[in-house]
Design a protein around this nucleic acid. Sequence first.
DNA 1: ATCGATGCAAACTCTTTGCATAGCA
DNA 2: TGCTATGCAAAGAGTTTGCATCGAT
Lengths: 135, 135
Amino acid sequence: MDVNQAIHLLKSKGYKHTDKREDMLNIFTKHKGYLTARNVLNELKDRYNGLSFDTIYRNLSLFVDLGILEETEFNGEKHYQMKCEDDRCQHLICIGCGITQNVNVRPFEDQLERSNDFKITGHKFEIYGYCSLCH
Amino acid sequence: MDVNQAIHLLKSKGYKHTDKREDMLNIFTKHKGYLTARNVLNELKDRYNGLSFDTIYRNLSLFVDLGILEETEFNGEKHYQMKCEDDRCQHLICIGCGITQNVNVRPFEDQLERSNDFKITGHKFEIYGYCSLCH
DNA sequence: ATCGATGCAAACTCTTTGCATAGCA
DNA sequence: TGCTATGCAAAGAGTTTGCATCGAT
């Protein structure tokens, strides 16, 4: 999903288009990897004097609810990135820079679903390590 | 690892054998799945009047450091269970009861390590859903 | 003008830490 | 006895919420 699609989705649900929301979305589309609320605030605090965590958190949460961002928790913090088109997409997460690479485990999950009596509702398949640049 | 092995490991590292630690370890060996600090406290609070979160947290953290427990974060809380013998073991986590099933993704990771320029240091491969009983 | 968005402040949850005391070895 | 474990209290971090005001449509 790109920024325009996301903004269109917001409007279609009755939410408003604000500069802060657009900027937040731009940050995520330009950064290939997970960001925390603090990361987002740091990116925007020069542009918006007095920008508060509340707004960041509220919008991050809204974006997740609308399916624009996906959320994961590690290192005691919630991390966000643009949601993959493929709901089976999975990540390698560089613990140096936060960059993620996608990997495909669909065949694995397909096999799992056939062979197990387990109804999948969500998953977290993340491999932590160092990407080629940080390594 | 069973309770006796864990206690032996504790002693060999200069940590002491206490009733609370033994009880905590027993809880984890008897429960096949993740538990939070609060879960552990609830299990023990009748037996130990005034048992504090501090002790639970300190011991959980110690157990993780010693490789007795493994830790993961979801729903805003840290969750713990006995560490798998196989360091490539992965989990299906029932969001109904917390029970975990292990699955083997070793072939997948082996292939990944060969084909990607990514140095793996850790991973979280967890599939959330409902087990056969909760389902 | 209306209703959502934001900032402020406070609260809340989970977790960690300093310090004095209790307890194992 | 010596050193670790524990409880108490407080602090700390990340996150959420109530309310009044600002701002988009």
